[in-house]
Design a protein around this nucleic acid. Sequence first.
DNA 1: ACCTGAACACCGTTCAAGT
DNA 2: ACCTGAACACCGTTCAAGT
Lengths: 182, 182
Amino acid sequence: MRADARRNAERLLGSAHEAFGERGVHTSLEDVARRAGVGIGTLYRHFPTREALLEALLGQRMLDLGALAERLLATEPPARALAEWLRAVVQHSMTYHGVAASLMVGMLDETSELGVSCAVMRRAGAEVLAAARRAGVVRPDAEAVDLLVLANGIAWAAENSSCGQPRIDRLVSILLTGLLVA
Amino acid sequence: MRADARRNAERLLGSAHEAFGERGVHTSLEDVARRAGVGIGTLYRHFPTREALLEALLGQRMLDLGALAERLLATEPPARALAEWLRAVVQHSMTYHGVAASLMVGMLDETSELGVSCAVMRRAGAEVLAAARRAGVVRPDAEAVDLLVLANGIAWAAENSSCGQPRIDRLVSILLTGLLVA
DNA sequence: ACCTGAACACCGTTCAAGT
DNA sequence: ACCTGAACACCGTTCAAGT
C-alpha cells in the first residue's frame, strides 16, 4: 500500500473513533471523512461499509476480550471468571453509542461483517462457560450465545437512555444470579 | 373531526400496522401513506411523528398488558404472576420488527413520545413486583424498570436475528431465575 | 377543514476526472 | 494507484395551492 494511502487509512480510523465517540456510530460518514481531511470517496475506498470501519475499530478490543478470558480462567475460580468477563463484555458493548446493535447482529449472525471478529468472543464465551459448567456452578442449559446476547441487551439498554451505572451493575447481577446455580 | 378525516386516520392505522408488520417500524412513511391511499401530507397531519403512529398502534395493547397484570395478581401466586406477565411483555415488544428500541426509550424516558403509554406498563410492572416482594419471592433490590429493561433487551435480541423461540424462552427463564429467590 | 404532492433538505453511495 | 467531489438516489418533512 502506498504511504499516503496508509496514512489516510490511519487518519480515518482516528477520526472515526473520535466521531463515533462523540456522536455515536450512526454519525454521518461525511463527518468522519471531513475530520480526517479526506474526500468521502477515500473513506469508501478504505472502508466500503460502516461495519467495515467498526470492525477495524473493534477488532483489537475483541481480541483483548479473548485474552482476558484466558487470563481470568488461569487465575480465578470459574464462577468469578464468568462474572468478571461478562462485566467486561458489557463495558465493551458500550464503547460507542449505538454499537451494541451491530455487535448483537455479529454475535448471532456469523456471516455478518462483524461476525468474524465476534467469533473470537463467541469462542471465549464458550470457554468461560465450559469451565463454569465443569465446575458445576452454572445452569447446564445455558449456551455461550445466551451470555453474549444478554450482555449486549444490557449494554443496549444502558446506551439507550439515562440508565446509570448502578442500574447496569444490578442488571448484570440479576443476569449472573440467573446463570449461576447456588 | 370530519368524516373523511376520521376515515383517513383509520386507514392510516391499518396500513401502518400492515407495513410495520411486513417491513418493520422503520419502513418508509411514504409506503404507509401509499398503502392507505392518501398523500404523505395527510399522514403527517394525523401523526406528526413515527412515534405518534406507533403510540396509536400500541396504546391499546399496553392497556391490555396492564389489565393482564391485574388479572394475574388476582388469580395466581405472585411468583407465577411475575413470570407470566414478563413473558407477555417480551411478546409485546416483538409486535413489530424494530419496536423494542422505541419501547425501551419509552420505558426509560418518561417525557418521550411513547413515555405516556409506557407509564401504564411501568405501573403494572411495579404492582407485579410489589406483590412478589411482599411474598418474599423476589430479590429486594430489583426495580420495576429493571424488569422492563431486561424484557425489552430479550425482545430486541430476538428480533435482531435468527434467535428462535427456544432461546427466547431460555433467556426469559434465566432472567426469572435471577429475579426470584429460592 | 382537510388533502395533495411538489419542493427542499439531508445523507449515503458511486464514478468520471484528476494527480 | 490513489484521491476528489460532483452527481445521483432515497427518504423525511414542510407548505403553498387546491378542494
